[in-house]
């Protein structure tokens, strides 16, 4: 396979980048968790313990081993899915995260769908009407997004649409009357309510998710629209577009059937990157909306000094962030005909 031979170097360097970045991420969470903070032995035995008790506890925690051995054990643990035990709930952190993560995925996925649905057409249209209102609109949306704290917009949104207008459900994933009435099968509230054949509960869940999803979708939209606009402008300046126009193809045909398919590859990268950024943005949004996802899990861990929970959550967000980054690079290598042909 000659095409594989061409892709292989890209794949190898991406794989190396992925491995070294993951190792760096693990090193950082390891260092934060074990080296920098207060002596973990003292945290266990107290500062009045005898030297003997201290030494015994130190040995039991594996802290008498050299740091590289401790780091090796940490990596091996993470590879097995062992993120430690929450000091508050006494449950494995990995189990806790598996329980709360679907709520975050549901929110971020709806957000990215909103971002793509509005951002891509807006970007294409702005490239069509350069320096006219769609162009200015994108500039304004991006500027406003880059200058506005998402948690503040969330609070104001709750004030206006929930308290004043009563259009949406309040904080949380579903109304109190519906809580525990829908069996959790997938962990995605919108899917579970439909599977249970409960359109009333579905509508209620939708009224709760629509505002937080729209808000994070807005930030994704501003980014996606700007990037789509840039890609389209570059594509439209190429000679085949001029040829198509000369041959009499309609402007809509040129935009959507000739130029647009050619920007799909970089666009996928942008969408993957903004999905990673959305996951991060949910940390603040979940706090405002009491959304029981990974972000709220991390911030709750911060307040209860539950370091395994905080670091486990950080690691999971970081892993997904890094993997999305690298996956988009790999898809780039495979999908872009210039790298495969």
């Amino acid at each position: 396979m000659s095409s594989l031979a061409r892709v292989l170097p890209v794949l190898l360097s991406t794989a190396f980048g992925l491995v070294s970045t993951l190792a760096g991420l693990l090193l950082v969470t390891f260092v934060i968790g074990r080296v920098m903070p207060i002596d973990p032995v003292v945290a266990v035995v107290g500062d009045k313990a005898s030297a003997q008790t201290y030494a015994a506890a130190r040995e039991q925690l594996g802290l008498d081993q050299p740091l590289y051995v401790q780091f090796g054990r940490y990596i091996a643990g993470v590879a097995r899915g062992d993120l430690g035990t929450s000091t508050v709930s006494n449950r494995p952190v990995a189990e806790d995260i598996a329980r709360v993560f679907p709520a975050t995925i549901e929110l971020a996925t709806l957000g990215i769908l909103i971002g793509v649905a509005f951002g891509v057409p807006l970007g294409v249209y702005a490239a069509h009407r350069l320096n006219q209102w769609p162009d200015h609109l994108i500039r304004f949306l991006a500027l406003f997004g880059f200058s506005t704290p998402v948690f503040w917009l969330g609070l104001l949104g709750l004030l206006v649409f929930y308290s004043w207008l009563g259009w949406i459900g309040g904080p949380g994933r579903i109304g109190i009357a519906y809580r525990f009435t829908v069996p959790p099968r997938t962990g995605f509230m919108l899917v579970d309510t439909l599977l249970a054949g409960r359109p009333d509960a579905f509508r209620n869940a939708l009224s709760h998710i629509v505002l937080p999803a729209t808000l994070i979708g807005y930030y994704a939209m501003a980014y996606i629209a700007r990037m789509t606009r840039g890609f389209m402008i570059e594509e439209l300046s190429k000679e085949y577009v001029t040829t198509a126009r000369i041959k009499g193809a309609s402007e809509a045909r040129v935009m959507w059937l000739h130029a647009f398919p050619n920007i799909l590859v970089p666009l996928i990268t942008v969408i993957a990157l903004s999905y990673g950024l959305l996951l991060e943005g949910t940390v603040l949004i979940e706090t405002v909306f009491s959304w029981p996802g990974l972000g709220l899990y991390i911030t709750n861990g911060l307040f209860t000094a539950d370091m395994p929970a905080v670091l486990g959550g950080t690691l999971v967000v970081g892993l997904i962030f890094v993997i999305l980054n690298k996956a988009s690079e790999i898809s780039y290598a495979f999908l872009d005909p210039r790298t495969t042909r």
């Binding site: 070294s20 760096g24 920098m36 991390i298």
Partner: peptide, 23 residues
């Protein structure tokens, strides 16, 4: 530059949260 790329690939806000938590 490898180190730079690694730090660049981290989610900034979440990492800042974890750092403040220990500091």
């Amino acid at each position: 530059m490898r180190i730079t790329d690694i730090v660049m690939a981290f989610p900034r806000l979440v990492l800042a949260l974890a750092l403040v938590a220990v500091l």
